[in-house]
Each structure stands twice: as C-alpha cells, then as structure tokens.
C-alpha cells in the first residue's frame, strides 16, 4: 500500500501507510495523527484537514474542484499556492511517497 509522510509544524515527520482507496485525511484520522481535525468527516465543508503539499508533488495530485478551491479561502492558517484539503486527495499507487506539511492551526 502507498505510504505518505506528514510533516508537523515543529519539523517532526510521520510516515503513514494508507489503506486501499483512502484519502490522505482518512489515513491520518484512522491513525489518530495530530494536526488533521477533519470535523466534517470528508464532506468538503470544514477546511480543518488543510495541508501544504510538497512542491515537487503538487502537479501529480488530482485537480482541485470548485468547492475545494472556495473552502481553502476559509482555512485557519494562511492559504498558500500549495494548499489542499487532505480529504480531497485520494491516495493512488502513483502517490506513494507523497509529502505534505501540516499547518499551525486547523481552527
């Protein structure tokens, strides 16, 4: 199964094995990772699953839908060009090794 890495604001990194068809958010919450809140359970409503995607991976991610784009305007930590919602990133074999950074705050 593909594995992805979350880097905390303090620099500590955590590698997470994903399960079949999971989103990055689901993998993080299944393992109880701090820093992903996911209040809305992946409904693209809350923007509390915000991540900064490592620049080298950005182009390889699935495109952003309009609702995700609009939600990112409401994130608690500043929106950057590499901001995404981790519940909208479905992990496929091609994303094995993906690196994302966690923001300072989710609410």
């Amino acid at each position: 199964m593909p594995a992805i890495t979350f880097i905390h604001p303090d620099g500590k990194s955590e590698r997470v094995e994903t399960a079949d068809g999971e989103s990055a958010m689901q993998a993080a919450t299944r393992l109880g990772l701090d820093g992903i809140l996911a209040e809305c359970g992946g409904n693209a409503m809350c923007a509390t699953c915000h991540v900064y995607v490592d620049e080298s991976w950005l182009a390889r991610l699935p495109g952003m839908a309009d609702d995700e784009d609009a939600l990112l305007d409401g994130t608690a930590s500043e929106r950057l060009p590499n901001s995404r919602l981790s519940c909208q990133i479905k992990i496929t074999p091609g994303l094995d090794g993906l690196v994302v950074k966690l923001p300072e705050r989710q609410v």
């Binding site: 809305c40 359970g41 409503m45 809350c46």
Partner: peptide, 23 residues
Amino acid sequence: RRTSGHVGFGSGIHMCVGQLVAR
C-alpha cells in the same frame, strides 16, 4: 476526547450542513 467520527451531526452526504454554525 478525539471526537471525530461521532454521528451526532450524522455522517455522509446528509451530514449536518449547519455544523459550522453550531460549532
């Protein structure tokens, strides 16, 4: 408690659309 996953606001496509107002 790590509350995420509770179904007090439902879950899935009908999960409370007013949850942000409530919170």
